[in-house]
Design a protein around this nucleic acid. Structure first.
Lengths: 125, 125
DNA sequence: ACTACATATCGAGATATCTAGATATATAGT
DNA sequence: ACTATATATCTAGATATCTCGATATGTAGT
């Protein structure tokens, strides 16, 4: 579990990547309640995801399928809130992937005689 | 091109991930030449990858297929060196993926009212 | 030119994935 | 209880992916 490779596989589908990016940008939006007060919202409903992905107000079983894949890969959380299912990004998952890539990057530098004398790409200069 | 999502897709296959990790750890190994001198090697031959993945000395068309996928995704380089094809990791690709994840991570923190008060996971404390 | 070797490409079967419609479940409001 | 709404699951067809054996290409050595 918590396998970065499975996470990459899940993120490797364009539809799922769109969903993931949408959740990253909207997982904890604020909304106005009926009193007009600003209230934090815990995540995004499946309906909102469907709307964003398909452009229609209709529920999409395809989106539901992809949300499940993202959940099984550990990339997102989904918990029921009354009638709604609310999705949010698992920040730990992002970190797992970043750690993996960091480790691979370090491995390259560690074994590359030549690379060690190169600038670390994107690193502080 | 240089799409992190395509890179994730390529890395999302366990066989390819193994190959990629192997290349990260061995893309610029040193070797002894016939005079016994230490010489840097530019990368890893396809044969060496096959050997690592399948455990046999035989060439594997499956490995060849996966190497092509990794190349098409931009994750590795492959150039001919005489009779051999020599593979190496594209460090820029690792950076593209890391940047993408960084951006998503930042997006989460940016929109999450709650998350902003949380410790950054894995960040400096 | 011939041979051995390293690798690529092709072709086909097995399996997995994606999509979308149909049906099922669960919850809130009446 | 009934109804509408939100979402999940099932099913099946279309497509993509993975694997592996067979064949092809290109290079080095004789």
């Amino acid at each position: 579990m918590e396998s970065p490779v499975l996470m990459f596989k899940a993120l490797g589908d364009p539809t799922r990547a769109r969903i993931f990016e949408f959740l990253c940008s909207n997982c904890c939006p604020v909304a106005l309640d009926d009193l007009g007060d600003v209230r934090p919202v815990q995540g995004v409903t499946v309906g909102a995801v469907c709307c964003h992905v398909t452009g229609s107000e209709q529920f999409s079983s395809t989106v539901s399928f992809h949300l499940k894949e993202l959940r099984l890969a550990g990339l997102i959380n989904a918990e029921k809130n009354g009638k709604f299912m609310v999705c949010s990004v698992r920040r730990e998952a992002i970190q797992v992937m970043r750690d993996y890539l960091q480790a691979q990057s370090d491995a390259v530098l560690g074994t590359c005689v030549e690379a060690q004398s190169l600038d670390p790409i994107g690193g502080k200069k």
